[in-house]
Amino acid sequence: MQDLRQCLIYDSHEKDAKLIGVEYMVSKEIYDSFEPEEQKLWHSHEYEVKSGMLILPKPAGYTDKEWEAAELQAMEEIIHLYGKTWHFWQVDAGHEYPLGHPVLMGSAINADQLDLNTAMGKRNKTFGVHHEEKAEARKDLQPHSIHPNANSWWQDK
């Protein structure tokens, strides 16, 4: 389906990683067609993209420069998408198996929610990137106006 992206979420990049969730992403046009109650289940990607939180791990066969250009092009698209993320395995809670109900997850939508240096430290080291450099490279990306129903779990606080 061309209007839907499906992203698998693993607990690591290692060969034995556990599949812990899935994120669905749709365009603003598709999101706008949803009923208001459905819209509240989705989040924007502006902060994830502009802050440098979101990266696409570099596949083999790309130089750093080639991958930076490809990733920036992808971020130009992703910044306009809305996501709905389900986590179904809480490995951070120590669960050996995917126990309990799936949990609808949001994403950070502003700098007040977390310390990026702490939150991104291990990721930055693992992948040899830095969120501040990513943010600088993405500073000119222009997001759309975020729908008022998106990110509802944060707005309700």
Rank of each mutant, 00 (worst) to 15 (best):
G121L: 10
K40V: 05
V129N: 09
K15I: 14
A69E: 15
A150Y: 01
N149D: 15
H43D: 09
P36A: 07
G106V: 01
L41S: 02
R123D: 02
H130P: 04
H131Q: 06
Y82V: 06
D156Y: 05
Q155T: 09
D11S: 01
K50T: 12
L81A: 07
Q155C: 03
A74C: 10
D92L: 04
T126W: 03
E48M: 11
F127E: 12
I79N: 05
Q39V: 02
Q2K: 05
D140S: 12
E46P: 02
L116I: 08
C7I: 07
W86I: 06
K28Y: 09
K65G: 10
E68C: 09
H147F: 06
L19I: 02
K18P: 02
I109Y: 01
G61W: 10
Q90C: 05
V49F: 04
G100V: 10
E77I: 14
I146V: 15
G121A: 15
D92M: 00
H95W: 04
Q39K: 15
D3A: 07
I55D: 06
A150W: 04
I9K: 01
Q90N: 11
T63F: 13
D11I: 03
M75T: 07
D3E: 09
H43N: 14
K58H: 14
N117W: 01
Y47W: 12
E132M: 14
I78F: 04
I109H: 03
D11K: 03
N151P: 07
D16A: 05
P143R: 11
T118S: 08
Y10F: 10
A108Q: 08
C7A: 05
H87W: 00
E35K: 04
I79W: 06
E136S: 09
G128Q: 10
M53Q: 13
V91L: 00
Y82Q: 08
Q73R: 09
A74F: 13
T118W: 04
G61Q: 06
R123Q: 08
H144N: 13
S44E: 03
Y82P: 02
L54P: 03
Y97M: 08
G83S: 14
H45S: 14
N149L: 10
G128D: 12
P102R: 02
N110H: 15
E38K: 06
H95N: 15
I78S: 02
D115W: 02
G121M: 08
H87N: 11
K134Q: 14
S107R: 09
G128M: 07
Q113Y: 09
W89R: 00
N149I: 00
A137T: 10
N149T: 02
W67R: 05
D92V: 05
M120A: 12
K28E: 12
W86K: 02
V103W: 00
S12Q: 11
P98M: 01
H147I: 04
K50N: 08
V91M: 00
S12L: 11
W154E: 12
D3Y: 04
I146T: 15
F34G: 03
E68G: 12
M105Y: 00
I9F: 00
L141Y: 11
I55N: 10
R5A: 05
I20E: 07
L41R: 08
L116G: 04
L56Q: 03
A150V: 09
A93S: 00
L4G: 03
E37R: 07
N151K: 05
Q2S: 07
W154V: 13
A111G: 13
E68S: 14
T118A: 02
P36T: 00
L114T: 15
L114V: 15
W89G: 03
Q113K: 11
